[in-house]
Design a binder for these strands. Structure first.
Lengths: 144, 144
DNA sequence: ATGCCAATCACCCGGAAGGGTGAGTGAGGC
DNA sequence: GCCTCACTCACCCTTCCGGGTGATTGGCAT
């Protein structure tokens, strides 16, 4: 499900080891100076905070990765519907709210050509209106 | 930035206190039986894992809350643009890809009335085409 | 060489959409 | 009582959109 990068794991392990080292260092100090009365509590608090912080960081990492996905185009759907590259250009222009005439200008072709492309797109997407075409294309993840 | 519910805080505090209690219980046991040689390490590991788990849970909560937000309608924008309730109905029908005639039927009014509503919406949203109206309305978070 | 297909363009037609204007009605505020 | 405003509807006119048909060109494969 959730994948954590190699780098992230390294950092987690590094931080964990650092905390462990600090914990044992404190333990050593405790034995050295026999400060049992106070240091035990301090010690606990330090470890608790340290590992809690580590945990929070890991938790945030875990979820942040999963939803930071930046739109993956569904090429499989495009292929299976037989949508050509040129049609994709027209489709994205269409989705940006441009009129047939505007799309024609921006792609340097005749408005008639755009009409043909759009008609073909409608057929392939099985719709009959541009708004629905945009809806469906977004649903199929073939445009952003 | 990130808001954490009252209930969530309660759970965090509860869990934290539980862990602290467990930690002190272990400490007490340590003094009781003088098991310094082994229990200290176990003790550290337990606290570390416990608080790390707590941290992970908090971390996940923190981000999960922020992106699980289920569309908050921007009533402020609606009000400032002076969009009436009826216009909102028309707008959402419009955004669902319906034609003027279809909207008219579903709202039980004349197509002419729908045209008027849409014309008013276009003026208020400062657009001149339905696709752009949908785009802008979604951008302003006044429709889903 | 033949065939297939994306891409280009043209023309026609009917209906939808958009722009503009005018107007009636009913609820709520001053 | 008067005013405002949302809501309703109508008519006109222009442009855009969508459906249908037909045709040409260039590339790619068999």
């Amino acid at each position: 499900m959730i994948t954590v990068g190699r780098q992230t794991l390294k950092i987690i392990l590094g931080y964990g080891l650092l905390l462990a080292a600090a914990a044992f260092a404190l333990e050593w100090l405790q034995y050295q100076y026999f400060l049992k009365s106070y240091s035990a509590e301090i010690y606990i608090v330090l470890i608790a905070f340290g590992f809690a912080a580590l945990g929070i960081w890991i938790g945030i990492r875990l979820t942040a990765k999963s939803d930071g996905a930046a739109f993956l185009r569904n090429d499989a759907a495009i292929a299976s519907l037989g949508i050509s590259p040129r049609e994709m250009e027209v489709l994205s222009a269409l989705a940006s709210g441009q009129s047939n005439k505007e799309i024609a200008r921006s792609l340097s072709v005749s408005p008639n050509t755009i009409k043909t492309h759009i008609a073909n797109l409608f057929e392939k997407l099985d719709v009959d209106r541009r708004v629905r075409a945009i809806e469906k294309a977004k649903f199929l993840r073939i445009i952003a």
